[in-house]
Design a binder for these strands. Structure first.
Lengths: 268, 268
DNA sequence: CATCGAAATATGTATATGCAAATCTCGCAT
DNA sequence: ATGCGAGATTTGCATATACATATTTCGATG
């Protein structure tokens, strides 16, 4: 498979959202408004050809100068399009050799897990929340370590059940470091999930995750309305802000009813 | 917390690898060789300040012009540094408002799962592979759909057991589309894992994943040397190349002994 | 006092230009 | 034939410049 296609469409009709974090139309130096930036149109055109199989992995694609000519832009603009595609893992570039469609080999898998609320509401299911437990106590040593707390220091412990269409969907076991988030002591978690509350009140800079499978213990089984011993998908998350652990949470999902599915997201 | 630091070090000493796909030194227009590009030095300097807590989430950071002045570069170079940091999710930018350290809110979780071999050998464990089953057959309809095969079309079916330090670690159930990879019919999978073999022989452009928990059925339990009914972490992967499904595989891990752990990796 | 509008500011996009580095090709000398 | 060196090509980095756009600030006006 070695084919070189010389001409891309000058007016790319297909639309791809810019994945930059910024919003709005963006600066449009001498560009009719409402249209995508030139470099985005070039990226979209290339992506389309790859997606539709016209250019397969390893195939060469037009170089910067050629793209610049075909699209009527400067070389820097074409350069930016190719550079970003390379960073997104869509293409590979070498000097003199040119650019080619990436051969995805030996990469780590990257899983993107959508947020729970979005997952539930996105499916059109009715979302419901139940606060099962709330205490401010000295955590057991295992939890204390994860929160990186001093011995004897108290923390806020919450247990909540999330329901989708009146069926248990997720059991949340959460500890909040009150030194990092004193306001949490006053917050009302009967209507707003602690995850959402924390998102709004405490910025964070880092998080760690663990995924595992375990058999439901009797308490978990009762809460999730499944049989004891049934497989449960466990996700643990620890969130930090400025070198301090803000919160640690363990989420349990009925393994039979919950699946994390995702398409490959290149490293970028 | 509202503090404005005016001066960043002109000669950033800390080193960050450019995450672009390209290697080598890169073009160095009027730049002493061996040093990072100017925009990378700026990025590194900013990241360092954030990492060390000097600038916390939500804090403003110097603007393009200020950085350009402090680092003695053009505005475009400073712009590129900030743009990339924004895309990586490290900072947030708004017109007129300026740039500030990102408040990580509402983002999807991104999990990075290292490849199995690397995981096993990285732990210093002895890796072993056993081919339990190999047949070329017409797959059951459930598998046929996943492979997007025509009815009656045959596919290569493999079952393998991966061991770490002589203990079952992963049970692999794989189907390979022989239309996409005819050479697979001749390959020897007793010594090389099909995953690795495919990586070397077939480029791929896309993959989908599913993660779930399930109870071990008797056959799985026997293979993994666990009790029937014990929780098993399941990962399914479907790989495509040019709109064709190359392979579909299901991996099962003993839930008690295997955990996927990862630090947060921003989208970028 | 409230509100609308102009100025100021910071980011976003784009051009034209120059040089550096990597690497493939080809011709020439041994 | 083999190997070495001189282009040629393609990507990478950076500057100077210009204009567009979003948003805040501030002042004028009713």
């Amino acid at each position: 498979m070695y084919m070189q296609i010389s001409h891309l469409s000058i007016e790319g009709t297909d639309v791809a959202e810019p994945d930059g974090r910024t919003q709005g139309d963006g600066g449009t130096a001498r560009r009719p408004r409402g249209r995508l930036p030139a470099y985005e149109r070039i990226k979209a055109a290339i992506r389309t050809r790859i997606r539709e199989g016209e250019w397969g992995p390893g195939d060469p694609i037009p170089g910067e100068s050629e793209l610049a000519r075909d699209f009527g832009v400067s070389r820097l603009t074409a350069h930016r399009a190719l550079r970003e595609l390379a960073r997104e893992g869509v293409i590979e570039r070498r000097r003199r050799r040119g650019s080619r469609v990436a051969v995805r080999t030996g990469r780590d898998i990257v899983l993107e897990i959508p947020r729970i609320e979005r997952l539930v509401t996105g499916l059109g299911a009715a979302y419901e929340l139940r606060l099962l437990w709330r205490r401010t106590t000295v955590p057991p040593s295992e939890i204390r370590e994860r929160l990186e707390l001093a011995p004897g220091q108290r923390a806020l412990h919450l247990v909540l059940l999330h329901l989708a269409d009146r069926r248990p969907f997720q059991l949340e076991d959460r500890w909040i470091n009150l030194l990092a988030v004193p306001e949490a002591a006053q917050a009302d978690f009967t209507t707003i999930a602690p995850g959402s509350w924390l998102l709004e009140h405490v910025p964070w800079s880092e998080a760690e995750h663990v995924i595992a499978a375990e058999n439901a213990d009797p308490a978990t089984a009762r809460a999730l309305d499944i049989e004891p011993g049934e497989a449960v998908l466990v996700i643990e998350r620890r969130t930090r802000n400025r070198n301090r652990v803000v919160t640690w949470a363990r989420f349990r999902h009925p393994g039979s009813s919950y699946r994390l599915a995702t398409a490959f997201a290149p490293r970028a």
